[in-house]
Structure formats: structure tokens, C-alpha cells
Design a binder for these strands. Sequence first.
DNA 1: AACCGTACTC
Length: 747
Amino acid sequence: MLLRAAARKKKTKHSVATLFLALHGRPLTSSSSSSSSSSSSSALVDSIATSIRPFPDYSPRKPSLRDADLVRDLTAALRQRRSDPLARVLRPFGPRLRPDHLLWALPLLRSDLPLLLSLLAWFRSCHPAPSPATAEATAIAAHLAAAASPCTARRLLRDGLRDGGRRFIDEVIYTYKHWCSHPSVFDLLLLAAVDVGRLDDARALFHHLLTYGVVVSADACNSLLARLPVGDMLAAFADFPQSSGGGLRWNAKSYNIAIHGLCRVGNVGDARRILADMEPKAGVPPDVVSYSTLINGYCSIGELREAMELMREMALKGLKPNPFTYNSIMALLCKAGRVVGAERVLSYMVRHGVAPDAAVYTTMIDGFCKMGNLSAVYRMVDEMRKSGLVPDAITYTSLIHGLCRSGKMVEAHNVFEEMLSEGLNPDEIVYTALIDGYCKLGRMTDAFRAHNEMLRRGLTPNVVTYTSLSDGLCKQRDVEAANELLHEMCSKGLELNVCTYNSLINGLCKAGNIEQAMKTMVEMEAAGLKPDVYTYTTLMDAYCKSGEMDRARGLLQEMLDKGIRPSIVTFNVLMHGMCMSGMLEDGKRLLDWMVDKNFMPNATTYNSLMKHYSLDKNMKATTEIYRGMCSQGVVPDQNTYNILITGHCKARNMKEACYFHNEMISKGFSLSEGSYNALIRGLLRKKKFMEAWGLFDEMRAKGFVAEHDIYNTFIDMNYTEENMEAALALCDEVVERCLVETKVDET
DNA sequence: AACCGTACTC
């Protein structure tokens, strides 16, 4: 490029100036035009000025007199017949028209951007990329448009970069001096490179421009910073001001991007240091965004205390938290299951005059969805609407996902339709939520129908979508199909991740193929993916259920050795396994160990032990475990009550059984089928016929089936009381339910 | 420049 420039320089220096004068009506400034613009978005760096080289000289081909006439005629025709189709206006010029004529015409149209653009578009269609003439014309058009219409220039630069990449960048630099463009064109060029994803080119451009003494503006660099992977971003963040000899100074946005990047990779400590350095080291005080970003960083790693401390700090600096700030806190509370606390924060912010935005409401809606509290969800949607906010696509996704997880697919689908009718575009995430809803219910046909629908919309299923489908297939015991699906996914260039592997491993385990599951874990390690707590828990569960407790223990040891922290589920799996293998004493020891080591057991942990003690008809030990549970402050769940009730019934402690029955009802829990049977049998034994009859009706109303002998007892009772009609109805019901049962079993 | 949504273990 430089050689070419030098060659031209010799030949045409004088005529360039003449032509420039002719075309622009003003002389070409002698110095590099960047030198006069330090006040604007780009600046010349004086400190490195000594090593600055001038922009290359470039001269367009010189028009002959005839050429100049033709160009004048051409532009005149374009102006006069601007409403006519371009091709028709140009037709009379026919074969005389060369690419050069169009290049010469462009500057004459500088004051008429629409015309210039349509001429360029026509030119580009005649000389499709990669044509050097097209690149040249596009670069020139960008220079001509840069000052008057930056957006247009940026679009042209994008077009040029898409066609020509690096060569186009050279072209823009090469044509720069002659067209006396404003140096902001380089801001636009860098922005355009970022727009089209040419991040490496953008970075190289920044450095390359320094050699000409041009420093791209901080804001243009920010758009690059924001798009770079965190490592590269930090490198550029440190390097750009240095390389530019201080010519580039980061602004608050730049710092915020760095803080955000560090938070995203969990390095909140460095993020905090950057925030602390802003004011003293750079004279750029942190703003609300800096604080909110860091607060969000702490919230996303669960550090509420630090987040609150920063809230205090920002208040001291006179910075008022905004909806973003509060939302991070609320999201953390929701994630910890403290939705009520989150709602208190919501009313606090409202009281303090901060209007919640859609994201804040979405956080609340999602929080309540995850608790399964749909009435609170609807209350929030209502409140949101009353505040004049409309649910966005993310709000709808939360809602749909919430309904799906409650198994309410009809409602979920209706809400999805509503989302469409609101003109919102569904994306792969909302489709994945729907698909997962169907998968969880085992409705694979519906799941794949939704999958096909998203394909029809031109959406690309992601690895989450595939994991959902694969998991659904696995849970239908169709590991084969799951495998096939995952292969299809890989063929589309997507890679399996830990979740996908875990689901597959689970499918293999549940299909009884532990060996293959273990091999799959080895395979995932070979693929560079680390087995996590899910992987180990799944495999441990499989070994526990097949009675191989030693292998389960071995896996526990392995995960501990690897520094993977077991979850409550891991312990529950182990506890369940021990109980199943009759190792109740080991189970009790495990429980004590957990309490001792601060691995808080939950109701499931206690339930396993209680269940097996009560199966052993040892209600003394069962009660002891129950007391231990209460003293640990673990709240009994519905299962706990059902275990206690059936246990006490079978041990003929009807007083206790009824006591727990009343208590569970008062908590809004309901009896299981087994508990109904046990309770009714116990009551009948005690001759409490009225109560027994009441429960018998109640359980049938819920669709449960009483055991045969209980039916028989009630049929006999009706016979003896000569209540023939009722007796016969019950007989019919037994027959019907048995038939239904058989049918269900057969399918 | 920052906040909200999808998959895997009992």
C-alpha cells in the first residue's frame, strides 16, 4: 500500500490538489487533518508525535477533460431525474461509463447524500465484492458521509468491512488524507469493525492508527472493550492508554466495563479494587453504574453482606441506588428462597421514590414461580401492569416457565399465545421453557412439536434445548433416542456440556446400565469437562439403589478428594441407600456427622430414616428421629406426616396418628393414598365408623383407590344396614376401578 | 456501561 502511495505521489501530486479544488471548492489542507482535532472525539498525541508517520498520499485517477464532462453530465442527470430508477438514468451513458467515472461522481454528490448512496448501491451491485473499485468507492463514500451523517458512514464502513475485511481498513486509511475526512471516521471504522464482529481487526486498528497519531475516542474503544472476552478486555484496558502514551484516557463507562467483566468471571475482588482506584488514580469518580455493577457481582456470588456494605458506601457518596441496584439484591434474596424479603425490598424502593422497572417485576415473578406460589405471581403481574409497565419477553418466559413447572401446560401455552399477540418475538429460551415443560410431563410428542415450531420460526435450538429433550427421552427410558439426538446436536456444531452429560449419565443409570454411565463420566473428563456434584450424586444413587454401598462410598470419597462439595441431595442419596440396605445405624451416624459438620439435613434426610424405622415397626426410634428433626429446626414436610401417620396406624397408636393428621391438615398438607388406607383401617379397628367413612369418601373424591378389604368392609356395613343401593354402587366402583387399574397396568 | 428468563442429582 505504501509503495503504491509513493508511486502515485510522484506522478500526480499537483493534479490531486487541482482536482480537489475543483470538486470541493476549497484547497486540500496540507497537514494531516487529524492534527487540528484534539478537542473532538479523536486526538493527536503530541507526546508520541515524533514517531508519527504521515497518512499515505493517494490520488484518484485523474479525469481527462472528456471524462470530467461525462461526470458532470452524469451527476446533473442524477440530480434532475432523482425520482427515476437509477438504471434508466444511467442507461444513456451506456458503455462509456467506467468505474472511475462513478468514483469521480461521488464527491460531486457530497451535498446530496441520498443520491450518493443510491449511486454507490448501484455501483456495488455492478461490481460485487471483492472488487478493489467497490472497496475504494465505499471508503470514499464513508469519508464523504462521516461528518454529515455518522450513522450512514458507519453503515457504509460495515458494508466495506464485511466485503473486504483488513484490506478495506487499509483502503479507508489510504483514502483518508485525500478526502480530508474528519478523523472521527476512524471512530466509526472501529465501531463498524466491532459491529461486524471483527474484534481482532478493531484492536489492530487501534494500534495501527497510533502510528499515524490518531487516537480513537474512549467511547469507540468502549464498544470494543465491551465485546472482548474478559481476558482480552482486561489486557486492552491496561494496554490502550499505555500504548497511546496517555492519549487515550478511559472514562467511567470504560471502568464500568472492566468492573463488569471481572464480576462476570467471579473476580469481584479485583473489580472492587478497580472501583476503588477510579477516583484517586484516574480522577474519574465511580458512578451509580459502577456501584450497581459491583453490587450485582457480589449478589451473584451470594455475598449479601458485601452488597449491602456497598449500598451504604454509595449512599455516603451521594449516589442514589436505581432499579438495577435494587434488582440485584432482590434476585439474590429470591435465589436464597427469601421471596418475601425480596418483596419487602420492592416496597422499600417504591417508598423511597425509585420506580421499579420490568426487570424488577420479572425477578419477583420468577421468585414466586420458583416457590410455586402462582397466586402471588398473578398479584405481581397485576401490580406491574398497574405501574404502567408491560411484561417483556423475559417476563413472559418466567411466567411460562413457572406454569410449566407446575404442570399447567394449557395455561403456559395460553400465556405464550398472549406473548405472541403482544407482538413479542419468541426466542429459543422461551421455546426451551415450553419444551422442557412437555418433557417433564413425559409428553415427548408435544415437546418435539414445539421444537419443530421453533425451527419453522428460524430459531436455532441451543444446548439447553437439546439437554431438555434428551433428558425427556432418557426419562422415558429411551436412552437410545437421546444418544441419537445428541449426535444430531453435535453435527450442528454444538457441544455437550456438563448438564447434558449428567442427564445422559442419569438416563443410563435409570436404565440399569451403571457401567456405561461410569464410562460416560470418563468420556466427559476426556472431553475436558469436569464431573460435578450432579454427576457424582447421580452415580452414587445408582450404586445405592443396586445395593452396592461400597462403590457409592468410594464415589463420595472420590468427589471429596477432588474438592467437590457434596450437596444435601448427595447425603440424602447416601442416607436412602443405607436405609434400603438396612444400615440404619450407619444412617443415624451419617445424620449426626452431617449436623456436626454443618451440612444442614432437610426433611428428606430425616424422612428416609423415619420411614425405615417405622417399617421396622420401631415407632420409638421413629419418634426420636422426629424429635431430633424438630430440635434442629427442620420443618416437617407432607412426607414426614404421611410416614408418621402410617407408622403410628400400623403400630396401633391411633391417638398419635390422629394428632399428626390434624396437624398436617392445619398446615395445608394432604394424606397420601397409603396414609388414607392406614388411617381408615386403624379407625375401623377402633370402631370409629363415622370418621372412617368420612375419610373413605374423601380419598375417593381425590381419585385415590382404597384397598380391596376396605371396600369390602364398607360394602358389608351397607349390607348389614340394608343400604342396598349404596352397597351395590360400591361393588360397581370396585369393579370399575379394578378394570381401570388393569388397563393402566397394561399400557 | 450495569438488573430479569431455558437444561442435569434424592
